[in-house]
Amino acid sequence: MNKSLFNKKRKHTAYEIVIFVVLAVYSLIIAGLFIWAFLSSFRTHNNFRANPLGVFTEFDFGNYKYVFDSLKSSYYKGKAKVTVGLLTMFGNSVLYAGGGALIQTFFTAAVAYCCARYKSVISTILRNVVIVTIIIPVVGTMPSLLELLKNVNLHNTWIGIFVQRVTFCNAYFLIFYAAFEAISWEYAESAFIDGASHFLVFMKIMLPLVASLSLTVFILLFVQFWNDYQTPWLLLPDYPTAARGLYHYLNDMQINNVPAQIASGVIIFIPVFTIFVVFRNRIMGNLTEGGIKG
């Protein structure tokens, strides 16, 4: 954006002032809520009860130790009750979010590449299938999916989860499609003349050219899957993830210690917050329908 036009000293418009005030209030609420909650997680229950707003009156890591010891999730294997701790749930979350995001990113990019660079009737059909699938809202298919997975013995298995991620029907397909279409095919032709296979051209030339976009899509999917507690709850009941564990911790265990409740939320939030801080520019500025940016 042209800085001379938008950043030079000028008279502030009414729009700018009004939106600034609205955004300032909104940001104050969001930032205030997060900072207040974070600082409250370091207070004892009694101290918090005495004055919920007195955030600087105590600094104690006891809630985190308590949550680390008590945040557990249980499920039944036959008649035996199995309980897993926070570390196992984190492991399941990493596998669920990381594995799912990796597979979905790769196949979305790969199919988009095929459709963008190998023009055929099938490519046109696949592209239209994506558009139609995105546009038409289909509701309430979870029972049907559950039944299907149970019938083919894929329910409650990692394979059952990962097989579902071998998909291309999502909005990222269109972004990858535009990105691959914008890349000159001369790179591929030169590589073919040098003896490279189609697979090698895709893996060694084309995919690295959209590496930045791929990483952004991977991060966004990772965050989405990390935060999802409902799908693993239904489809992967014996492998509780951290988000699902948090849900059961707060709803089933009746924890009255409010700062400990907040601390449990902070623990689950830390990994995605770290990712957000490290990759914030990539996440918030690298995704365009026109292709590759930055």
Partner: peptide, 21 residues
Amino acid sequence: VTIFMPSIVCSMVLVIFYRTF
């Protein structure tokens, strides 16, 4: 950043903070 922030937070976490507030 502040506008985008809630979308990276698990709905459970956002609800804990909001409910406590």
